[in-house]
Structures are given as structure tokens and as C-alpha cells.
Design a protein around this nucleic acid. Structure first.
Ligand SMILES: NC(=O)c1ccc[n+]([C@@H]2O[C@H](COP(=O)([O-])OP(=O)(O)OC[C@H]3O[C@@H](n4cnc5c(N)ncnc54)[C@H](O)[C@@H]3O)[C@@H](O)[C@H]2O)c1
Ligand SMILES: NC(=O)c1ccc[n+]([C@@H]2O[C@H](COP(=O)([O-])OP(=O)(O)OC[C@H]3O[C@@H](n4cnc5c(N)ncnc54)[C@H](O)[C@@H]3O)[C@@H](O)[C@H]2O)c1
Lengths: 205, 205
DNA sequence: GTATTGCTGTGATCGGTTTCACAATTCGCG
DNA sequence: CGCGAATTGTGAAACCGATCACAGCAATAC
């Protein structure tokens, strides 16, 4: 559902302005800073049961807390990273420390050159130990950055090991039982789409 | 429009099976391999004016050509990459050689340590030369991988320099005239969303 | 104390996308 | 050659998220 993404975006903005005056925001401010309409902000907050105050807007600190309460697992979620290639090794430092609730706590690769080390505080295991480590650390969320040809199989093992949500970067269709959420971010296709629209917009050469 | 993405996906599958038997595909095959419904495949192909043959399906090679004709700029599009950090440096080798129509031909960074070189066949320029190089190479599409705080400004310069489509990885709202297509891939928010749904699915501890 | 302003909460509506459902067509077969 | 099976093309319906529009209310002004 798209609302979940918007809530994350609202929260990010609220955290950026945290502490500053006046401690509350109007739907139209949140909308402006976030690229949506005021009605949609109000609708979203209504849906999570967070009420504002007529003429005073929404209390920022409480709203952050309410969104966190709605979105986050209270203890935070450990995340597995599968595939330590170029992309995986870029993601690792990015998430290290940056996010309060989502931490990559285990990485896996089939290549023995990539495993055994600790990178950015994250242990890198041989791919064989996937099930074991995932059960051990009670991991439910994974990022998949393996080659397309290996993606379905790796995803299947993740799901079988107990993972319930996968962010997949491989350009491949992943089929899993519907109890597992899979989102594929296909960078190539996004770029093709952008090039398509870029070409159509008022073409001047 | 979502159809554009699906067309890219159809094409990718068709290219994977190119050359193999029987030279044509049914809507239900394409649908199956691509994760959509057969009716949607037919509707999409109808929209681009590509007709199949009753009982024989769609001729694969011609369909690839028709999709290419619809989506691609005939000469291909040169792409700029702005921001040579961890993510930018992962994207560079990924696109190098891989895509027939989209090639990263110029990269930019403010950090003098990152510029002056040629990486994966792509020249890396100081950020100052952005306008000059973009005009020179007639670049219309860009990938933006700079820190969030720098994203709006960099995007503005890209647009002013003639770029019409931007794939943005910075977690920031980019505002540009509507003639410029901007798509933000926010990896953090995608992961938060996945963690949310992972938590809700049949929670067993 | 009354009027005015401006914001929230939400039922109603809208618009785009997906899906349904079926007529039309072609093929293989007897 | 006519029948049954299979597939396309597409109007119509269903669906779903976004937007509109306004009633209700709290704060402020006068
Ligand atoms: N690099 C990018 O910028 C980029 C951009 C878009 C999409 N992608 C996609 O992301 C994926 C990874 O890209 P990359 O550039 O990091 O590739 P890469 O080849 O650099 O890395 C792939 C890694 O996966 C490991 N691996 C291979 N098979 C495995 C398996 N079965 N289990 C676990 N690990 C395995 C390899 O050892 C390697 O370390 C690919 O599917 C690619 O298409 C990458
Ligand atoms: N690395 C990741 O895996 C990842 C994941 C999700 C999102 N992102 C986002 O992508 C962006 C880049 O991430 P990163 O990890 O590569 O960061 P990074 O800090 O490694 O790289 C940023 C690069 O941009 C350059 N830069 C800074 N200001 C610039 C400007 N005004 N013009 C041109 N170049 C400039 C810096 O010199 C640096 O090389 C960030 O916005 C980040 O939030 C990164």
C-alpha cells in the first residue's frame, strides 16, 4: 500500500525539523514538503488513527511517535543482505548506523573471497550458513543483490528460512508464497522508463 | 504510466528466449513469465498497436522490435551520472556495456579526488563542467546519486542544462518543472515498507 | 459575546488501471 | 468441409487510490 511509503516520508520530514518551532505542523505544510496534497496527508493520518487539532494542526513529536508505532517493530528488525557484489557492498555502509530500526546484521555470499570478514560491523557468512544464521538471529527481512539467474533460488531459501519480506534488486521475477512480501527495484527498467518520458517531453534537439 | 515498465519487462523476457523455438509467444506465456495477467499483456500490446495472430500468438522477434521502436530513442540515450560515491560507483560498472541503448557517458562529482579519471569507459568531470558537457554530448537523462542535501540543487542544474529525465536515489523531494520527469528510488523507504508488511504477515516468533 | 477565519475529518466523487467476459478468428482434425 | 479447441482484441464493469468539497469546530478579532 502506498500509504505506508508516504508515512515514512512524513516521518522523515518531521525528524528533520524535530525540535524546531512551533512543535506542530499543518497538513498543508507536511504536504508541501513532501510532495502530496493536504487532503491526502489528512486522510493518511486519519487512517492510522492520529488526530490533529482544529486550527493547530498535528503535534510533531507525537506524530513521529505514532508513525513509528504504526510502522516499526518495537525492537527493530535485523536485516540480511544476500550478495556482496558492487551493489551489496554499497548498501552495507549506507545502512550501517544510519537507520535506528533497520540494521543489516548478516551478509551472505557464495564467493569465499567475500566471506569470513566483518564489513561495517556486519558479519559476512558463506551462503551455506543462510538458514542457520537467519534462524539464530531471527531475521525476517532481507535484501537480495545476487545475479538475476540466482535470485529465485536464493529467495526461495530465504523464505524457507523464515524471511517474510525481501527487497530484490535483481532483474528477475521472484515467485514466493503470498505470505512473503517481495518488492523488486529494477533500476534498469526505471531508467528505461525515464528515458522514454524524457524523449516525449517537448523534444527540442 | 505503468504500461511502460511492463513493456520493458516483456522485452527483457523476449530477449532471454530469443532464437529459441517457436518464434512466437502467447499472451499467457508472456504473462506467466512476467507476473501479470494475460489480459493485461494483450491490452498492453494493443495499446502500442502490435497485433498478434489468432491461435499463433505474437511473433517474438517482431514484438521485440516493436517494443524497442516504441520505447527507445533510435540512436540510444547518453546518460549522465552525478555523484560518484558508493552507489554511483556501483552503478557505473553495472551499466557499462550492459544496455544497448542507455550508456553512462559522463560522470560528475564535486570531489576532485573522484574526477579526472576514466572509470569503466566513462569520463569523470568536475561538477562545474556539468552544463558544458551535457550540452556537448546532448545528454537528456541523468542518474542522481548525491547526498540528499545537494539533490535539489544538482537536479535544478541538470534540468537547466537540458536534462529531461532524472532517476534520483537521494532521499529528498525534487521539484522541477513538469516537463522534466523525476523518479525517486528511495531504498530506505522501500525497506521500511517491506519490514512493515513482513511484520504483519502471519507473525510467528 | 458574536463574527470571522482557517484548519481538521470525512462522505462523496472522480479518474485511471485492471480485470472480466465474450465475439471474432484461425487452426487442426476427422 | 464443418466442428471443436484455442487464442486474440476489446467494450464494459469493477476496483482502488486520489481528490474534492464541505460540515464542524477551535481560535482569534472586534
Ligand atoms: N551494481 C548495480 O549498480 C546494479 C544496478 C541494478 C541492478 N543490479 C542487480 O543487482 C544484482 C547484483 O548486482 P552487482 O552489480 O552487485 O553484481 P555482482 O556480480 O557485483 O555481485 C553479485 C554477488 O552475488 C554473489 N553471488 C552469486 N551467486 C550467489 C548466490 N547464489 N548466493 C549468494 N551470492 C551469490 C557473487 O559472488 C557476487 O558477490 C544483480 O542482479 C544486478 O542485476 C545491480
Ligand atoms: N549507498 C547506498 O547504498 C545508498 C542507498 C540508498 C540511497 N542512497 C543515496 O544515494 C546518495 C548517494 O549515496 P552514496 O552512498 O553513494 O553517498 P556517498 O557519500 O558515498 O557519495 C556521494 C557522492 O556525491 C558527491 N557529491 C557531494 N555533493 C555533490 C554535489 N553537489 N554535486 C556532485 N557531487 C556531489 C560526493 O563527493 C560523493 O562522491 C545519497 O543521497 C544516499 O542517501 C545511497
Amino acid at each position: 500500500m502506498k500509504r505506508i511509503e508516504r508515512l515514512s516520508v512524513y516521518r522523515r520530514f518531521l525528524q528533520e525539523i524535530a525540535g524546531s518551532e512551533p512543535g506542530s505542523v499543518y497538513s498543508h505544510e507536511l504536504a508541501e514538503k513532501t510532495g502530496v496534497t493536504p487532503a491526502q496527508v489528512r486522510r493518511d493520518l486519519m487512517e492510522i488513527g492520529f488526530a490533529g487539532h482544529t486550527k493547530k494542526g498535528y503535534r510533531s513529536a507525537e506524530l513521529v511517535a505514532a508513525i513509528g508505532n504504526y510502522l516499526d517493530s518495537p525492537e527493530g528488525d535485523p536485516v540480511a543482505l544476500v550478495g556482496l557484489g558492487n551493489l551489496g557492498r554499497a548498501l552495507l555502509p549506507f545502512f550501517a548506523g544510519h537507520h535506528p530500526k533497520l540494521k543489516i546484521t548478516a551478509a551472505f555470499d557464495t564467493d569465499p573471497l567475500k566471506t569470513g570478514r566483518v564489513i561495517c560491523g556486519c558479519r559476512c557468512y558463506p551462503f551455506d550458513q543462510l538458514e542457520e544464521v537467519i534462524a539464530e538471529e531471527n531475521i525476517r527481512v532481507a535484501i537480495l543483490t545476487v545475479p538475476a539467474a540466482a535470485a529465485q533460488k536464493a529467495a526461495g531459501r530465504l523464505a524457507a528460512a523464515g524471511v517474510r519480506g525481501i527487497l530484490n534488486f535483481a532483474p528477475a521475477l521472484i515467485r514466493l508464497p503470498k505470505a512473503v512480501t517481495v518488492e523488486t527495484m529494477d533500476i534498469t527498467i526505471a531508467l528505461e522508463k525515464i528515458a522514454f518520458f524524457a524523449r516525449r517531453s517537448g523534444d527540442e534537439s
